[in-house]
Amino acid sequence: MLDAIRAEERGGDLSYTESQGKILFAHYCATCHGDEGRGDGQNASNLNPPPPDMSVSKNTRDSALLRKVIAEGSAAIGRSPQSPPWGRSLSRQQIDYLVAYCQSLDRKRP
């Protein structure tokens, strides 16, 4: 049974925490950032500057910075205000999950 759940989560590549983050990411972030954080969401073409490719971005590795951007928005680190603050909508736990997923993005490259 466990195998069936793991098999779905990208070939067992994602830990539980990361896959929790993936589900939240798909709901809150993927419209702009794309399902895999490559910056290719369906709304990406409307954004200037466009969302970054998180799987290669250095900022993704800094979990404190990542947490700040998610909670307070990209404007909080001096970028464009296009990525809004989620700190009041998401719990600390949910932001932890998102951080875990974002940090898993550069790990698996086909």
């Binding site: 419209t31 702009c32 709304n43 409307n46 954004l47 928005g73 404007a75 464009s80 205000p81 296009q82 990525s83 809004p84």
Partner: peptide, 18 residues
């Protein structure tokens, strides 16, 4: 403009469609 509303909302011919 400041909050970046246009990232998701269309107004006239510009803006996102979330």
């Amino acid at each position: 403009l400041q909050l970046g509303c246009a990232a998701c909302h269309q107004l006239g011919t510009t803006g996102g469609y979330v």
